[in-house]
């Protein structure tokens, strides 16, 4: 395994087969991927192509059945135990018996941060996702978009360099989504985190990423990895430029190819 020093996630011939009652399901097969430190990697592909599964393998929530993978140079289990990553699930998964503040504090409590540290970090991360003043509310008193932002704050509260996000903005309207995309980019620039981001939206993937991973189903494979030529500084208007449309076109082509393979 010759992962370069700056490699955060390194997958070699990674495969995962679920044994189900109606036979094996090949969720991932022969996935090769390098995610470098500071990358913003988007995963895009049709439903069921294994995007969530790949993220879950990185997070050690699922075990690969073939190939190898390292996270921060360790096995996923070691990486999980040393709390290398923050995971934002497809749904907010906030605990309804805790206030927003208490939800954000949860990982800090578990990881044993001091009380004063906890206070500071909650304040800071809630400010970061524009939820200042909502700390005392319960999750069910907030809109879906606010809940999702709270769950992002929770993943940002502790010092993990790697952020795994599974369709975090999937259920939000276009305007809120734009807004959160912009904030996420700012945050990424400010914190120098590495981000793995699953999405179904081509513009979202192109707008956010330095690297776009196009996947196709049955079995889940990587069909194309597109390196973005866009600058790191990205106003929302960049989505109208020819360069942006060019990359979006390539992603769309990649997705089409994946679909035609299926037929």
């Amino acid at each position: 395994m010759n992962a370069s020093a700056s490699s955060v996630v390194s997958a070699r011939k990674l495969g995962l087969t679920f044994q189900t009652s109606d036979g094996p399901v090949h969720a991932l097969s022969v996935v090769d991927l390098e995610v470098e430190k500071g990358d913003f990697v988007s995963f895009i592909g049709p439903s069921g192509c294994g995007k969530t599964t790949f993220l879950r393998v990185i997070a050690d929530l699922e075990k690969n059945t073939a190939g190898e993978i390292t996270v921060n140079g360790m096995t996923p289990e070691e990486a999980r135990k040393s709390r290398c990553y923050g995971y934002v699930f497809q749904a907010p998964a906030l605990y309804p018996w805790r206030t927003i503040e208490k939800n954000v504090v949860l990982p800090l409590e578990i990881m044993g941060y001091s009380k004063t540290e906890q206070k500071q970090r909650v304040q800071r991360t809630l400010d970061l996702v524009n939820l200042t003043g909502f700390g005392k509310k319960y999750p069910w008193q907030l809109s879906g978009g606010m809940q999702q932002r709270a769950s992002i704050a929770r993943a940002l509260a502790f010092d993990a360099d790697l952020l795994l996000m599974d369709e975090p903005f999937g259920a939000l309207d276009e305007i809120v989504r734009d807004h959160l995309n912009e904030q996420l980019l700012k945050l990424w620039a400010a914190t120098e985190k590495t981000i793995c981001f699953v999405t179904h939206s081509i513009p979202e993937a192109v707008y956010l990423s330095t690297k776009i991973v196009v996947m196709s189903p049955r079995p889940g494979r990587v069909t194309d990895v597109i390196h973005s030529t866009l600058p790191r500084e990205r106003p929302l208007e960049i989505r109208e430029t020819p360069e942006f449309l060019e990359i979006a076109h390539r992603v769309r082509e990649g997705l089409r190819a994946g679909h035609s393979y299926e037929e």
Binding site: D60, A93, L106, M111
Partner: peptide, 26 residues
């Protein structure tokens, strides 16, 4: 408790008792 909620605890490398007190008992 839901599987996602439990996965969340797992992603924090939370121990048995912490998961019990902070998630499963509530």
């Amino acid at each position: 408790s839901g599987s996602m909620e439990r996965d969340l605890m797992r992603s924090y490398a939370s121990g048995y008792w912490q998961t019990l007190v902070k998630l499963r008992l509530p």
